[in-house]
């Protein structure tokens, strides 16, 4: 009997084990094939879904490839000027302490033009969550150097590789943020394998739960690929990320319960 179960019998709502959350809209994502932005969006929205927070959540989209995040996240959203998302979120949360507020920002947005807003929101201990997508490059504008670009890494403005003597060092914004007393939970995750996605989602949930307890700023970095900017296939890009990005940006919790994690 069991062996003869048909495809049609299996594809049945009662057997459903995974379905895209309704907190994501049905719009086709504007991201390149294989870009981690899509997965990052989805896990955040899955958490909003599972926690039943749609009506209480206000998200802030950055300038960068994810500028259109509001087309994909099925919640009320605001689109911020380049780098200023934490300023918007500060006001939203101060004026609506009962709401769940988050920003979603790239590395150029958060760690270059918006450094001041990021650091000061963190230092004031603002009660919102920052999702920081670090792909080591400016994706939207065509693959220029970001503050997070690795040494030796090529980009359209470091065509021979980044040399720190002339172009500065890659910036570990997340470690910097973790030093500030206003941050309560700081972690670095990835979304390139099923295991990493599940871990990252747990981190997202932790961050949102801590936000609800008014613990201060919660910060989830997601190291991601920009296969277009890196000029690789998505699969190659994920491998390159494992081989090159993770050694410099190691995954794991950096600050838990307001205490730096001892390594």
């Amino acid at each position: 009997m069991a062996d003869t179960i048909t495809k049609a019998e299996i594809i049945n709502p009662e057997n459903l084990v995974y379905k895209k959350t309704s907190m994501m809209t049905n719009n086709v994502l504007s991201y390149c094939p294989g870009c981690g932005h899509g997965t990052a969006h989805r896990i955040i929205m899955e958490v909003i879904d599972e926690m039943g927070l749609q009506a209480k959540t206000i998200g802030v989209a950055p300038v960068g490839c994810s500028v259109l995040a509001y087309d994909f996240m099925n919640i009320d959203m605001q689109q911020a000027a380049h780098g200023r998302a934490p300023a918007l979120a500060t006001a939203i949360k101060r004026l609506h302490p009962e709401k769940t507020v988050f920003t979603y920002q790239g590395d150029g947005d958060l760690a270059a033009i918006g450094t001041a807003e990021t650091i000061h929101a963190a230092n004031r201990g603002e009660n919102f969550t920052i999702f920081f997508i670090n792909n080591g490059i400016y994706g939207m504008t065509g693959g220029q150097m970001a503050p997070t670009t690795l040494e030796g890494m090529k980009s359209s403005t470091t065509p021979y590789g980044r040399e720190w003597q002339r172009m500065g060092h890659p910036l570990k914004m997340t470690e910097l943020i973790a030093q500030l007393p206003g941050t309560y939970y700081v972690t670095r995750q990835a979304v390139h394998t099923p295991v990493s996605v599940r871990k990252a989602k747990k981190a997202v949930r932790t961050a949102i739960e801590l936000q609800q307890q008014n613990k201060g700023l919660t910060f989830v970095e997601i190291v991601s690929n920009c296969n277009s900017g890196w000029k690789m296939t998505p699969v190659q890009a994920n491998q390159w990320m494992v081989d090159n990005m993770f050694p410099f940006y190691p995954l794991g919790d950096i600050k838990v319960d307001g205490e730096l994690v001892k390594k």
Binding site: K19, G38, V191, H192
Partner: peptide, 10 residues
């Protein structure tokens, strides 16, 4: 792991 969330599983 699908970035575009196009897979439903039963």
């Amino acid at each position: 792991v699908c970035p575009d969330g196009v897979i439903t599983v039963y």
